[in-house]
Design a protein around this nucleic acid. Sequence first.
DNA 1: CACATAACGAACAAAAGCGAACATGGAAAT
DNA 2: ATTTCCATGTTCGCTTTTGTTCGTTATGTG
Lengths: 255, 255
Amino acid sequence: MRLNPRQSDILDLARHIGRVSVDDLAGHFNVTVQTIRRDLGALCDAGLLARTHGGAMLPSGIANIAYAERRRLSASAKEAIGQATAALIPQGASLFLNIGTTTEAVARALADTPDLMVVTNNLNVAEIMAAHPTAEVIVTGGRLRRADGGLTGDMAVETIRHFKVDIAVIGGSALDHAGDILDFDPDEVRVSRAILSQARAAILVADHGKLARAAPVRIANLADLDRWVTDAAPPAGLQSLCKTAGTAVTVAPPR
Amino acid sequence: MRLNPRQSDILDLARHIGRVSVDDLAGHFNVTVQTIRRDLGALCDAGLLARTHGGAMLPSGIANIAYAERRRLSASAKEAIGQATAALIPQGASLFLNIGTTTEAVARALADTPDLMVVTNNLNVAEIMAAHPTAEVIVTGGRLRRADGGLTGDMAVETIRHFKVDIAVIGGSALDHAGDILDFDPDEVRVSRAILSQARAAILVADHGKLARAAPVRIANLADLDRWVTDAAPPAGLQSLCKTAGTAVTVAPPR
DNA sequence: CACATAACGAACAAAAGCGAACATGGAAAT
DNA sequence: ATTTCCATGTTCGCTTTTGTTCGTTATGTG
C-alpha cells in the first residue's frame, strides 16, 4: 500500500500527538471530512492507526484488548469446563497446562486442590497458579507470543522433555468433525505434542464453539486422548468416535 | 471491542493512581456521569477495570496486583536508574534482564528503544516487555518463585546457555563494601552467574539502598562488570575499586 | 431498623459522525 | 483528441455516541 503525502503527514501527526480528529485534519489540510475519513480508513486498513469516532488514535494495546475480549467470550462455558476438569484432578498430581483461555479456566478452578505440580508454557496460567498456596509452578522457556502470553519454540519443547507428568490438560483452537484437534501456530503445536508425549494421561478441554472453527495445524486426534471435557453434548459422529476409541467424554453442567 | 480515546485515558489514569471516581472523570473530560458510567462499563466488560460504587479500580487479578505493587515500590531512584540504563542500550541490542525491581524499571524505560531482543527469567519483565511494540521476548524456563515472579533452577541456566547477548543488566539484593554483589537465593545466583558468563558486557543496576543491606550468596564482584548504574555517588572505597578495575560508574540524575 | 442521599442502569431523543453512491475535474494513457 | 482513471467533493440515509430523565439499588447515619 502506498501512502499519499497527506496520509503520511496524518500518520506523523498521530504518532506525535497520539490521536487526531477528523474535523481538525480536514481544517488543517483544507479538504473535506470525507477525504480525511478515506485517509483514516486507509491508514486503519494498513494497521497503522485505529479508528475512533471523530478521529483515530495509535493502535497500542490492540493485542491485549483482543485477548481480554477472547477471554470473556463464552466465559461461563469455559468456567464450567474448568470446574469439571478440576474435579478430575486429584490432590498432589503433576500436570501440564498448555496455551488457551480454557486451560486458564482450569487453572483458576484448581485453586482448592492442594500440592499440585504444574508445568505450563502459558504465562497467564503461571500467574494464576502463582496465587495458589501450595502448588509448585514450573514455566517452560521459550519465545513469548505477546498476543496470548504463550511460550513456544524449541526451548519450550526441551524443557517439557524434562518432565513426565500424571495428566496433561490441553486446549486447542479448533476441533473438526474427524476429531482432529487443531491450532493456528505450528510452534505451539510442537509444544502441545511434546506435552502429550510426556504425560501418562491426557485431557482435552474444548467448548462446543471450537467445533465451528477451523485451524491449519493438527495437534492430535481425540482418539489419542483419554478424556474430553466440553460444555455441551457433542455431535453423534464425535460421540461414536470417542466410544470406539475409548475416550471418555465429560459434559460439564452449566453453572 | 474498541476503546475510544477517553476510555484509554481513563485506563491510563486508573493504572497510575489505582482508582478513579465517576464524578472526577466526568469533570475532567467534560462529559456527563452517564457517559463515564458507560465507559467504565465497557472497560469493566473487557476485564481491564473493576467497577466500584462511585468509580472503578484496577481488577484484582494477579497481573494487576503485581502492577500496583510494582508501582507502589517504584521509588523514583529505581526509575531514574532505569532511565539512565536504558539510555546506554542501543536499538537492536540483545539483552539479559534478571530478577529485581530495578531491572523491571529498566524494562519499563526501554519502551522507546526499538528492535530489542530480551531474554529474562523475570515474569514481570516479560509482562512489561510484552507490551513493547517491537521487542522479541524470550523467557527462560524454571521453577516459579511466587514471591517475585522469578524463574530459577537448572532449567533457567540451561536456557540461558543457548544465548550470547550484547548486554546483561543484572540487579542484586545487596552490595557490600568490597564490591561483592549478593543475593539471598542460591538458585537465583546460579542464574545470574550464567547470565554474566553469556554476555559480552554487563551492567549492574543497584540503588544506594542496596549498600545498607546484606545477603548470604555472592553473585560477582563489581570489578567483574563493565558498568554500575546507581542513583547517588558511591562511597569512596567503591569508587576507587571501580576506577582500578575499569568499571564505569553512572550516577543517574534524580528525576 | 428506617430514612436520606448518592449512585446506578435502562430507555429515549438529539446530535455528531459515518459510509455508500454518485458527480466533478484534472492528469495520465492511448 | 479522446478515453480512462483517480482523487476529491456532495448528498443522503444509517449508526454511534452523548445527554436527559426516571425508577431502582447501594451506602451510610441516626
